[in-house]
Design a protein around this nucleic acid. Structure first.
Length: 241
DNA sequence: GCGACAG
DNA sequence: ATCTTGTCGC
């Protein structure tokens, strides 16, 4: 099943190790009640060639903007279905760690456990940082739709739900430390129908694109990373001229 | 072998 | 995701 994936991955990339890591980390995914939520975060990435502009935002449950930060990094891995986190995890984590405080739950643009190895980027980030995450994807990568539910193609297990947000159908799944029902309710309650996305992801998406449009003259450090002008905070380990 | 295939 | 021309609506 990975023959086609193999051809799209960089030479020397250890695909078997990547799969092993995905399976191992997926065992750490926890499903639990979200509990009381006051702040909701969102992360998304926009690209300009191989430059990745990542934005992280925090909103109150009533939609009020509380915090935001964006970073730019050099993309070091191509887009390969089932391996998205190897491309976007680092950019997303860098911008997320820039936030002044961790939101109660984080919405990620991509799958959670609705993934062939049970570790979409939302789960990968959640397990890596111990943060509550919800996977919100605009299309399906894996699973079979049955009404508004998505079942595992092999085990028949419930792995996600579809949510209509305006004109768009979203694929919601558990990322980490949340339950599917709570995740679906939160996505529905924050849905911006005119844009087809929940407010936190919409804000992150727009901010990432604004950052991309104003990237002239950015100075990247030795790791191919830099903090966007005006962010006000640096990611851990960052240095500024 | 031929499609499917998060962003 | 990004590219890209044309179209619709405020």
């Amino acid at each position: 099943m990975d023959e086609s994936v193999r051809k799209r991955v960089p030479p020397g990339f250890r695909l078997e190790l990547a799969r092993h890591i995905q399976r191992k980390l997926s065992m750490k995914v926890r499903v639990e009640s979200i509990g009381s939520v006051e702040t909701v975060g969102g992360v998304d990435v926009a690209y300009m060639g191989s430059l990745a502009f990542s934005a992280a935002v925090t909103l109150s449950v009533d939609g009020r903007p509380l915090d935001a930060c964006c970073t730019v990094s050099k993309a070091v891995f191509p887009y390969v279905p089932t391996l998205l986190s190897f491309r976007e995890l680092t950019p997303m984590v860098r911008s997320f760690l820039c936030l002044g405080a961790r939101p109660d739950v984080l919405m990620v643009d991509g799958q959670g456990v609705m993934h062939p190895y049970r570790l979409g980027i939302a789960s990968h980030i959640g397990v890596s940082l111990g943060v509550r995450t919800i996977g919100v994807a605009k299309s399906r990568l894996y699973g079979i739709e049955h009404g508004d539910t998505v079942l595992d193609e092999h085990s028949g297990e419930l792995i996600g739900r579809t949510v209509i947000c305006g004109k768009r159908k979203l694929y919601v799944s558990v990322g980490h430390r949340v339950d599917l029902e709570g995740a679906v309710d939160l996505v529905k309650s924050l849905c911006v129908e005119t844009r087809g996305l929940p407010a936190p992801l919409l804000a992150a998406h727009d901010m990432a694109n604004r950052a991309k449009r104003s990237c002239i003259g950015l100075q990247l450090d030795r790791w191919g990373s830099a903090t966007c002008v005006g962010c006000g905070r640096d990611p851990p380990g960052a240095t500024r001229p």
